[in-house]
């Protein structure tokens, strides 16, 4: 394991380093994922660009249309943030379900998204919330909807010279109810076998908007707008919930790993979408 460690103390410095080394460089933030990959010798970058000394990349900033979260914000800070707890409780929940407290104190939001590990909690919650990722390089800045950002196993839309510089989470409709369900098939500290993030807005009994993201069961977390739309303007009856759950179970190409077979994951999607929607209908905010 031999690489050059760069520790730029400014964003331009970091972007310059990435532009210079391209694919041979890897970004080090909290290090919870990349250090494991380095130790297991799965990756062998020649340059490691540590972003820890860049100022002002850890923040949670509330604005009228949503919140901006800095890429170096730790998952523990997100879990404990009053703003997030108040306005995006499912994100606080999902952040608080990752690994254990030692991991959450170290892992960052930017690192979590850039790693694109399929068996991780925050991406699913963020997908349901309609998150946008801002990536910056010396070439400029662009904003990418999360569904386009996450491409496949450990694969994102980021170019080698780009760095995540902001994560924007738009405000949900007032009075929305949300939930995050993490299903662990093994120990209480395991990664999810499947997870469901759901947000619904209601007028009286009528659901005016529904967003459901299912994660950890396929390459990338998935939203199925056509299925979500079944709920629009409807009361969430047991039958409708069953129909939506079946829609997710039937249309997601589930994967098989040590936490469960593809068949099992399909069952778990159906059951947990039902449980999530029942929770929303029954009034939990």
């Amino acid at each position: 394991m031999s690489f050059e460690l760069l520790q730029p103390d400014s964003l331009p410095g970091a972007l310059k380093a990435l532009a210079q080394h391209g694919d041979e460089a890897k970004v080090l933030a909290g290090g919870t994922a990349i250090v494991l990959m380095l130790q297991q010798k799965l990756i062998a970058p020649t340059v490691l660009v540590s972003v820890g000394r860049i100022p002002d990349l850890a923040y949670i900033r509330s604005e009228p249309d949503g919140i901006h979260v800095g890429p170096l914000t730790t998952l523990r800070d997100m879990e404990r943030s009053l703003v997030i707890q108040t306005h995006f409780p499912l994100l606080a929940q999902a952040s608080g379900e990752v690994g254990n407290i030692r991991v959450r104190n170290q892992a960052t939001l930017g690192g979590n998204l850039a790693e694109a590990d399929y068996a991780s909690d925050p991406p699913t919650a963020l997908l349901a919330l309609g998150t946008q990722v801002t990536a910056t390089s010396l070439r400029g800045e662009r904003t990418i909807p999360l569904e386009d950002f996450l491409i496949g196993f450990y694969t994102t839309d980021l170019e080698p010279d780009e760095l995540i510089t902001d994560v924007f989470i738009p405000a949900s409709a007032p009075g929305s109810r949300t939930t995050y369900l993490k299903y662990r098939s093994r120990s209480s500290e395991d990664r999810p076998c499947a997870c469901v993030a759901a947000i619904a807005a209601f007028e009286a009994e009528t659901c005016t908007d529904l967003r459901v993201a299912v994660g950890a069961a396929s390459e990338v977390p998935q939203r199925l707008p056509a299925v979500e739309n079944l709920a629009r303007g409807q009361a969430l009856t047991d039958e409708l919930i069953g129909e939506i759950a079946a829609g997710y179970a039937d249309n997601i190409d589930t994967l098989e790993d040590i936490r469960g077979s593809a068949w099992y994951r399909t069952q778990m999607i159906r059951i947990h979408v039902v449980r999530a929607l029942e929770e929303l209908r029954n009034g939990r905010r």
Partner: peptide, 26 residues
């Protein structure tokens, strides 16, 4: 929880993230 996963003689979960030990929470 525990099972060493083997594929063609190769152990595929030789780490304590994939080879699952109980947690105190269990």
């Amino acid at each position: 929880l525990e099972e060493v996963a083997i594929d063609g003689g190769q152990i595929t979960n030789p780490n304590l993230s994939d080879y699952m030990l109980p947690s105190f929470l269990d």
